[in-house]
Amino acid sequence: MLKDITLGQYYRADSVIHRLDPRTKIVGTLVYMISLFLFNNLICYVFAAVFLTFVVGLSKIPPKFMFRGMRSVLFLLVFTVIYNIFLSTGTVIVKFWVFTITYEGIQQAVCMLIRLFLLIVGSSLMTLTTTPNQLTDGLESLFKPLKIFKVPVHEMAMMMSIALRFIPILMEETDRIMKAQIARGADLENRNIFIRVKSLIPILVPLFVSAFRRAGDLALAMEARCYHGGEGRTRMKAMSFSAGDIVAWVILAGYIFAVVFLGVTFKTFPEFLVLEMKAGLEYLIPTLSAR
């Protein structure tokens, strides 16, 4: 049951998307996510979906695998749809008992559904094509400027990659401890909330003890392999932008342009953003033309 989570699972394949620099993928995913929140009509979403389909196609990841990760968030999707359908106000289509379904509600629900769907597929595309270590390397590199403010960027990246490595192990361990305590008669399915909370102790205590033991072991193993912080550390897969990345950045720039175009055409951007953009352009264009 706990094994179904696809997030953070790398799918091994040899594709242009896999070969991209992690930084390109992180920035690209971020841009894509922002674009989804700026859109609010179907035409825009069709455009975003076509773009994503194109990228998924390039990644050589079987669609079946992509959708497997959806199962764990199915509840969230269903909840969003129901919430929007029944709790929006507007032109009433059907009304029965306390429920009213409105035209706006359905529209909102469909948009939210598509938005969430694209969001999940988009972000799992990044985790499926990038190993967690590449991902943390990418984040470390993107956040490097923060080092000036004494933010421990390397340490945070290392912590993240260790967490990613140990989450599945601890999940399995939880499963095992739960079974062992059930076998000793622990009542984990009692309706009474107090009994249920109390019955967590026999699971949480061993889990914490084990997590601490693992942490101690791991620290020792890292030290034994000459780990001494980020200083003087090199990388086997040194990040470098390739020709593929340049192409990707150009496509990304095109996508941003298209997003802005669509957004302005359909007036989907919040007003303050449009004003900001206008001000920015009014400043930029004269400056550039002056050169």
Binding site: K179, A180, R184, I201, V205, P206, S210
Partner: peptide
Amino acid sequence: IGIVFQYPEYQLF
């Protein structure tokens, strides 16, 4: 039926 799992000492609490 009693069952003792692998490394049962990890269930002590």
